[in-house]
């Protein structure tokens, strides 16, 4: 116990001199199916909430249960403007990607589950008011993943600064890094310099 405490003290003082601190994503190798369904369900509930609150007027003017049953069978190229098709859907895709990353998914799995969330939105939520769109299906997860990868790296860069403005920017670029049990952590990585000897130590906290 005493030895551990002493080592911990030593490490604490060694960090600024011999180690770099990195804000890293921690990938979970095995995510149980029950958890996968839970994460997907949480995202799906958020999608419904977002849709009902932001599209209230459109739903009242154009929405119906008949659309909801009929529209999933007739996807098409929509006529939406650039802001809606490229900007808003990219942001939605990035939010899906970052959510799944924060739950410990690898980059490829986060992309695939973003795809599933996007399919669920297009075929079971938005169909209240409109037909599923090929542009949305293709661009939401792909452009979203590109934006999400960038946002995650920027967020990590700012978190590593370990100053309040940096931390705020870190949370702004990746709001999911603030969630409880988010798969991100600070990790001390030893700095290896030429001509120096020493022991390699790594710890997580």
């Amino acid at each position: 116990m005493l030895l551990r405490a002493m080592l911990l003290m030593l490490m604490f003082f060694a960090v600024p001199v011999f180690a770099d601190e990195r804000f890293v994503h921690v990938e979970r190798t095995q995510i149980p199916t029950r958890k996968r369904i839970e994460y997907f369900g949480v995202k799906y509930a958020v999608q419904w909430t977002f849709y009902l609150t932001t599209q209230y007027e459109t739903i009242q003017d154009h929405g119906s249960f008949r659309n909801w049953q009929k529209n999933p069978l007739s996807p098409h190229f929509d006529r939406d403007n650039f802001e809606n098709n490229v900007i808003r859907h990219t942001l939605a895709g990035a939010s899906y990607y970052l959510f799944y990353r924060s739950r410990g998914y690898s980059e490829s799995q986060a992309f695939l589950w973003s795809n599933l969330s996007s399919l669920a939105f297009e075929f079971t939520i938005e169909t209240f008011t409109e037909r599923p769109s090929y542009q949305d299906l293709a661009l939401t997860p792909t452009l979203g993943t590109v934006a999400g990868i960038g946002a995650e790296k920027l967020s990590a860069y700012f978190h590593e600064k370990k100053v309040l403005p940096g931390r705020i920017l870190g949370f702004l670029f990746n709001p999911y890094s603030v969630l409880p049990r988010a798969s991100y952590e600070f990790r001390a990585i030893p700095v290896i310099r030429e001509g120096h000897f020493g022991a390699l130590l790594e710890w997580r906290y």
Binding site: I31, L73, L112, L116
Partner: peptide, 21 residues
């Protein structure tokens, strides 16, 4: 044909999700 497109989308994504895991 559109319905088949939807099914293919879903099945391929699920399969890939499973495999990549």
């Amino acid at each position: 044909s559109r319905f088949c497109f939807v099914v293919v989308c879903l099945c391929s994504t699920l399969t890939l999700a499973q495999e990549s895991g």
